[in-house]
């Protein structure tokens, strides 16, 4: 069964890198350019996992995760939180907001696949 990942990032290059890497690995990818669009797509598409950036216009990553987690349909959907900051406090905030895991930029395509495989199998 093809798994669908929602990639939320305002940077087209990172979105493109994430999408291409995952598509090549056989995942289906939906893209969103900020937290608000991410929220709309997460609630209107059948998705299996989310990868979201923190720094975004309109609604940032933490805000997006919190709002998404208010919906029952978010239960059991893993969220990977991207940031350039490796500080534990931010990871803890992400965790508290409802992210399952995180990745610190920069990361390689192999690392990305490893993380997705880790949460989706």
């Amino acid at each position: 069964m093809t798994r669908t990942v929602l990639a939320v990032d305002d940077s087209p290059s990172i979105r493109c890198m994430v999408a291409m890497t995952l598509r090549e690995a056989g995942y289906q990818v939906i893209e969103a350019t900020d937290g608000q669009e991410g929220l709309e797509k997460a609630l209107s598409h059948p998705i299996d996992a989310i990868i979201t950036d923190q720094n975004m216009p309109n609604l940032d990553g933490l805000g997006f995760i919190r709002k998404y987690r208010e919906h029952p349909s978010s239960k059991g959907k893993p969220i990977i939180f991207l940031s350039t900051d490796s500080a534990d406090s931010l990871k803890q905030q992400a965790r508290d907001a409802g992210a399952l895991g995180w990745m610190v930029k920069p990361f390689t395509q192999a690392q990305l696949l490893a993380v997705i495989k880790k949460v989706l199998g």
Binding site: S11, Q54, P57, L59, D60, L62, G63, R66, A97
Partner: peptide, 17 residues
């Protein structure tokens, strides 16, 4: 937390469209 995120900055340009 229902706190408003700190990073909730205004839209400056519709980049990413």
């Amino acid at each position: 937390t229902a706190k408003k995120p700190v990073e909730d900055a205004p839209v400056t340009a519709d980049r990413g469209g």
